[in-house]
């Protein structure tokens, strides 16, 4: 018998026993917009439909019932499920509401959703909305700038003789109020690191010269970090993916190495992907994000241009 992957084990456990609400939300977020990863889920549902002889199986409807009442209990809309109550296997996964967990990802739906007037809408910002209109809140924002005057590094790239700067903001109007409250409890520590095309890690915050991490508080605006990176040092031409993490605990360089190793294996994120810390396994994040409500992450990238334009076909790329 082959050993299932962690993801497959989590899917099977969710379908049979039910995961705790927090873990279930993280799993669901991970599978949203990631067709290849949810293939195992979809196949299981397909087989259950055949087994139950239904177009939509009772199992999947009962599963959604458990999700629904877990979430309503978390929100304080209903009381938590008493043990042993419920239909079929629904009760098996019903646990007392856990911390809001992936509530950091759940969109806060404003205005009129309960009023069923047919309409076609997009998000207020015009951003792409995943299926079901379920956008992803991204409480941590990261903007890379370089040059003088500063320009967005993501759009135009940077030269090797320039400085790289960072702007961040913590807060999102789409954030669930519960998740916002969790993030606002106390300042979070901000760490930033990069992964070069070669796979090498670039330590921006902390780095050997700046071990003290800036603290982040919830804000409506962007804040420029009082640190800059001389790209002529330890950098070479090519694309650099940059990752920021706001966490209750300060990460060490060993933590950053571990995170970078996991992230280096992942493809570049798309609009449907959740923030990167929720794409990692729990043990890869631990102990930095043992309470994922108190963590937020963001990623960006920039192209470090070759000093000789003739040797850099990527220069014309955005």
């Amino acid at each position: 018998m082959s050993r299932p992957s962690k993801l497959r084990r989590a899917i099977e456990r969710e379908m049979v026993d039910g995961l705790r609400a927090g873990r279930r939300r993280v799993l669901v977020e991970r599978l949203r917009g990631n067709e290849s990863e949810r293939r195992g889920w979809d196949r299981a549902i397909a087989a259950l439909r055949v087994l139950e002889d239904r177009a939509v199986s009772r199992t999947e409807i009962d599963q959604v019932e458990r999700w629904l009442f877990d979430d309503l209990a978390t929100q304080g809309v209903v009381e938590a499920a008493p043990a042993g109550r419920g239909r079929g296997w629904t009760w098996l996964g019903a646990t007392l509401a856990t911390v809001a967990t992936a509530a950091t990802l759940l969109i806060w739906i404003g205005g009129g959703e309960g009023d069923p007037q047919p309409a076609i809408t997009t998000g207020d910002t015009g951003e792409l909305i995943g299926r079901g209109g379920l956008g992803i809140a991204r409480p941590l924002g990261l903007e890379l700038v370089c040059g003088t005057p500063p320009r967005p590094a993501r759009d135009h790239g940077c030269a090797l003789d320039e400085l790289l700067g960072f702007s961040v903001r913590l807060g999102d109007e789409a954030l669930d109020p519960r998740a916002a409250a969790a993030l606002a409890e106390a300042p979070l520590h901000l760490s930033v690191f990069g992964i070069a095309e070669t796979g090498e890690v670039r330590y921006y915050l902390p780095n050997p010269g700046a071990s003290e991490l800036p603290e982040l508080a919830m804000t409506k605006g962007w804040t420029a970090l009082p640190t800059s990176v001389r790209l002529a040092v330890n950098h070479g031409p090519g694309r650099v993916r940059v990752f920021a993490l706001a966490s209750a605990l300060e990460p060490s360089t060993a933590d950053i190495d571990r995170l970078a190793a996991s992230l280096a294996e992942q493809a570049r994120a798309s609009v449907d992907d959740p923030p990167w810390h929720l794409r990692l396994e729990a043990d890869e994040l631990a102990p930095l994000c043992s309470d994922v409500d108190r963590c937020a992450s963001a990623e960006s990238e920039f192209l470090l241009l070759n000093p000789d334009p003739a040797r850099d076909p990527a220069r014309t790329r955005p």
Binding site: V28, I45, A46, D71, V77, R131, L134
Partner: peptide, 28 residues
């Protein structure tokens, strides 16, 4: 229609989550 069971469940969940919000229930 959703070919993916996961997507169907995701939207079914969101449908009733919205329908059961206090404001939605009050408006019904």
């Amino acid at each position: 229609g959703y070919g993916s069971g996961f997507e169907l469940q995701d939207v079914l969940h969101e449908t009733f989550r919205r329908a059961f919000e206090p404001r939605s229930r009050a408006n019904y």
